[in-house]
Amino acid sequence: MATTATESVVVRRPLDVVAKVATDPGVLLPLVAGLGRFRFIGRLDDGTEEWDMFLDIGAIHVGGRVHVVSAAPTLTWQSVRGTRHSMLVEVTEHPDGATVTMAMTVELGGLVLGRLAERIARGIAGRHLVAGLEQLRHHLEFGSPR
């Protein structure tokens, strides 16, 4: 089973400027994981990267090692260790600038309780995505995240 949280934010900056930042894992991951922890592991031969990324949620740490593929205007990552999840970041045009959309899909084990946990996880993931998107927007519009 899997559940997906999707959130968007409008950034009042040109699409190319937004895409460059939003699809740079070195900028984006610290923003998205600002409420947890993150660490750059290394760059692979094909140009992709591996990072350790965890969200601190109450008593647990959701995340693990992720394989990041960046190709502006999109960025994706897939877990290779830890909580099974994937992420899609996409930048599209908007009359006021650009829209950044993040979609996080989380897979948890179990049947009834697993489904309940996924439902709760979707809300948590959604709030983390909003927090990350707002940090990204503020960073782009005002120069520095608070």
């Binding site: 409420l35 109450g58 948590i124 927090a131 940090q135």
Partner: peptide, 17 residues
Amino acid sequence: STMQVALSALAARTILP
């Protein structure tokens, strides 16, 4: 914007409303 960033970060600490 500054307040929204902080409010969203605070909201991300919520497990269940």
